[in-house]
Design a protein around this nucleic acid. Sequence first.
DNA 1: TGACAAACGATAATATTTATCGTTTAATAG
DNA 2: CTATTAAACGATAAATATTATCGTTTGTCA
Lengths: 165, 165
Amino acid sequence: MQNTVPARRVEERMKHFQARASELGLAATHQRRIIYRVIAKSAEHPSPELIYERVKREIPTISLATVYKNIKTFAAMGLVGEVGALPGSIRVDANLDRHHHLVCVNCKAVVDFCDSRLDRVRAARANPENFRILRYQVEALGLCPACQVAPARNKVRTQRRKHNG
Amino acid sequence: MQNTVPARRVEERMKHFQARASELGLAATHQRRIIYRVIAKSAEHPSPELIYERVKREIPTISLATVYKNIKTFAAMGLVGEVGALPGSIRVDANLDRHHHLVCVNCKAVVDFCDSRLDRVRAARANPENFRILRYQVEALGLCPACQVAPARNKVRTQRRKHNG
DNA sequence: TGACAAACGATAATATTTATCGTTTAATAG
DNA sequence: CTATTAAACGATAAATATTATCGTTTGTCA
């Protein structure tokens, strides 16, 4: 898979990182710069473990906890996204009919969502990676009714939450 | 959130379960029937832990491992789906532009996928759960080039795999 | 009944993520 | 320039999530 982000774009992202950090009064430490650069350079959606491996090549003494903490910090700053909106644990679905999902970005609730127009989603062009696409699945990300009325809860959550519908 | 699957549909699913199990020569044990029924009854995409809690009310001696094993078995049989195609660990993305993802259902590789038609996806109707939808994200599920040519690897995998692009 | 395989339950092991806490670093006031 | 202070770091324990191991039970069939 292609994992080469053009150097020019990496530098753009580094600039954005610096700007955003100073905006928020967040120290742009050596560790943070390296961690962010590793993420900015990879187009492969790396896991924390992989990021840790690569950062260690430049800062051998770095702690895995620092990597995790800063990934979360970057996500809260809006500097990186997390792929997929779903919670950390398996969720099972007995509904085998074609359907999509409403996902609450706050509490991670998942609700089935049947919609004929979403069933007809297709890409406009062949994908450049030569995947053989079997099906499309749409996630509608938003706020469930409970989280709409409790906006205070709608902030960054580090704690794990269990099986919440 | 609504978590009541009509009794009629639950019974349909139980019939399907029995049929599929005998088709595959899989014993429809008491444990399996109860586990599957718990899943079939809930529209809330339960986690293994939650399924375990509920099954325990009927079979207090059941083991969590049995629940996990059978969830995996049911998934391999095509009796239940797992919500979301992504791997167990966090994946980070420095690309903040609007984009979608190609996901390999075999090796879980994730690749960014920009497509203008997917950007315009909208539901046809208001969603019945009154979510406030903020954005739509499309996952195109399929096989990456490597997994197309290595179909032998394309079977159920129980083992965890690490950071594979 | 006896042999066999499938399934189960207990539990250890592994993987993933977060929390705790003492130390270091960096920014700033004096 | 030094003292103060808060932020950040590193080490590590703890919590959570998932899978593997293994001995026992159960059901099937010769």
